[in-house]
Amino acid sequence: MDIPYTVTPRPDTGVYNAKLGVWLFLASEVMLFGGLFSAYLFLRLAAPAWPGELVGHTYHHASEVLNVPIGTINTMVLITSSVTMVMAWASLMMKQFARFKLFLGSTILLGLVFLIIKAFEYHEKFSHHMFPAESTFLAVYFTLTGLHALHVIGGLIVNSYFWGPGSKMWQTQPERFTNRIEVAGLYWHFVDIVWIFLFPTIYLL
């Protein structure tokens, strides 16, 4: 039996099922990150100083601890990957499969670049004995950016599948495949939005 409404919209919701499903999933993700953001705000309100004392020094701005230029570059990398993701979908809508491969491939590469830069930042912190247990600031930093990085890894796995073996569906069910890329994109853009809030609130404020 075929799964219903993978291509045509369901009459009562007006959208195909996967789209509503992914939006519901994203709603739960909003609550997950929202809970952590509110915990961050709570901890920060109660902190006597922020970032405060870290491995023997007292800091007054997060930008003295975290590398803002590298964070900015990573923001640009993720924004660019969001554009290539939506372009991958647009290419399928225009029936240009080669272009789709190019754009989704770029999205995957940019995701990898983001993770490599993030790993470099983590290494930098660890080499200065800055671990999550050292301070509230570092606990918040590693929890939020770590969970975000896990989401990037999840997106990379899904996108890589659709770039590789999953793309065979284009030959048999092109419309269904286009919808799959659209909802994979919804998730990827959500991960981008989380970073759009993480970067200023953790690095800049």
Binding site: K19, L20, S82, E182, G185, L186
Partner: peptide, 11 residues
């Protein structure tokens, strides 16, 4: 990018 500008009511 997430096409909310032309999305349906359920979303």
């Amino acid at each position: 990018f997430m096409h909310l500008i032309s999305e349906k009511r359920a979303v």
